[in-house]
Simulated scan of single mutants.
Amino acid sequence: MKKLIVDFSGTIQKASKYGVLGEVQVNSPYGVQNAVLPGTSIKAIRFETRSTDTAIYGGVRSEIVVNAPVKDATAFNPWFAFKFYIPSAEWDGGTKECIFPFQFHDKSLADGGEKASPNFALEILNKRFRVATRWSTADYNTASNRKEKWTDIGPAPMDQVVDLVGYYLPRTDGTGVQKLWFNGKEVFNLVGANAFVGSYYDYLKVGNYNWNRVLKCVGFIGGPLIVGDSAETYESMYAALQPASPQPVPNKAPVVTLTDQNVVTTFATLSASVVDPDGKIVSTQWRQVSGPNVALIGSLQSAVTGISGLVTGQYVFECTATDDKGAQTAGKCTVDVDIPVPAKKVVFEGRMFDDGTWEKL
Rank of each mutant, 00 (worst) to 15 (best):
K3R: 15
L4I: 15
D7F: 10
G10L: 04
T11M: 06
Q13S: 09
Q13A: 11
Q13C: 02
A15K: 09
G19K: 05
G19Q: 06
N27Q: 11
N27L: 00
A35G: 13
V36T: 15
P38K: 09
P38C: 07
S41K: 14
S41F: 11
I42N: 13
K43Y: 14
I45W: 09
F47Y: 12
D53Q: 13
T54G: 14
I56F: 09
R61T: 01
R61N: 08
V70S: 03
K71N: 12
T74R: 03
A75S: 14
P78G: 07
P78L: 07
F84K: 05
E90G: 05
E90Y: 06
E90M: 10
E90Q: 11
W91A: 01
D92M: 06
K96Y: 03
E97I: 08
I99N: 06
P101R: 00
F102G: 01
Q103L: 07
Q103W: 04
F104H: 04
G113L: 10
G113A: 09
E114L: 12
K115V: 15
F120A: 01
I124G: 01
I124W: 06
K127G: 05
R128K: 11
R130P: 06
A132W: 01
W135Y: 11
S136W: 07
A143T: 07
A156N: 00
D159N: 15
V161L: 08
D163A: 12
L164D: 02
V165T: 00
Y167F: 13
L169S: 07
L169Y: 08
L169W: 08
D173R: 05
G174N: 10
T175P: 02
T175M: 00
G176R: 02
V177W: 01
N183K: 12
N189A: 11
G192D: 10
N194C: 13
N194F: 03
F196S: 04
G198V: 07
Y201K: 03
Y203E: 00
N212D: 14
C217E: 10
V218P: 03
P224Y: 13
P224V: 15
S236I: 12
A239P: 08
Q242Y: 05
P243G: 11
A244C: 06
P250G: 13
P250M: 12
N251P: 08
K252S: 14
A253V: 15
P254W: 12
L258F: 01
D260T: 09
Q261Y: 04
V263I: 09
T265E: 07
T266C: 01
V275M: 05
G279C: 00
V282G: 04
Q288E: 07
A295F: 01
A295K: 03
G298C: 01
V304N: 07
T305S: 04
T312L: 01
G313R: 02
G313C: 02
V316E: 13
V316R: 14
E318I: 09
E318C: 13
A321F: 08
D323F: 03
K325I: 05
A330T: 15
K332N: 14
T334Y: 10
P340T: 12
K344L: 06
V346R: 11
R351D: 01
M352P: 00
F353Q: 10
D354M: 11
D354G: 10
D355Q: 09
D355L: 09
T357R: 13
T357D: 13
